[in-house]
Design a protein around this nucleic acid. Structure first.
Lengths: 119, 119
DNA sequence: CTTGACCTTGGAGCGCACTCCACTGTTTAC
DNA sequence: GTAAACAGTGGAGTGCGCTCCAAGGTCAAG
């Protein structure tokens, strides 16, 4: 599929996709005319990228994770270990959020929360 | 307290604190000599800012939340409502993380996950 | 009364993640 | 065959969240 279709299907702009290609986050073949050709798997991959990104991972991190996954010998064990790592990362983030949530809930009880003024 | 002490106590650079002041994220009094004077509450506030930021909130969002909280009539009900809102936001983020976690876990089972290449 | 640590204000620069633009080439539809 | 819709490149610009720097003012210790 060419960049326009991928753009529509992924919800990302053409420019963003070209940018992602430059930084190695997505790959593509080139048609004889120079047009980029993307495989169908690129759509779920970009979905994943967007999700991970919205959750606070940088493109560099996401790219590294993807590379690690691709470079791992595809024995189920190694793969599982990598996923376990990523899941631990996600769990850590969730724990932080839970802490923030509690902090908010706690302060909801007290009189004077969260004052940015230095007064 | 002056900016140096606040910097040490909050773990933020002086420059970052000055930047936060410029964008209205922290307030300060000025001593006759022009030095910034920060109140003790600024430390937990900056802690909160850092946490919220690490969890994906922009400084603008954090500032807006803080303002809303300060501007709310300090009746316990209004305050609680605001906190409930923020907590819902946090909950939404947690749900997203849970979904990502599941996606990762699911793919851990399948053979070929997450391929950025358009091949 | 100087030294040094602290503070001030601009303003420039940087890394990230794009976006926009101008100009050019290719393909498709009528 | 020409117009529209698509593709390509390079480079500038943007907003965020800072960092770094130069030039200077303030203040306590020796």
């Amino acid at each position: 599929m060419r960049i326009g279709e991928l753009s529509e299907r992924s919800g990302l702009s053409r420019d963003a996709i070209r940018f992602y290609e430059r930084i190695g986050l997505v790959g593509s073949q080139r048609s004889p005319n120079g047009y980029r050709e993307f495989g169908a798997e690129t759509v779920p991959w970009l979905d994943y990228v967007r999700t991970a990104q919205r959750l606070g991972f940088s493109l560099a991190e996401i790219g590294r994770h993807g590379e690690e996954l691709r470079e791992s010998p595809d024995s189920a064990e190694a793969l599982s270990a990598l996923f376990a790592e990523k899941i631990a990362l996600v769990d850590a983030k969730m724990a932080e959020l839970a802490a923030l949530r509690e902090e908010l809930a706690d302060r909801a009880g007290t009189g004077c929360p969260l004052r940015p003024d230095g007064s």
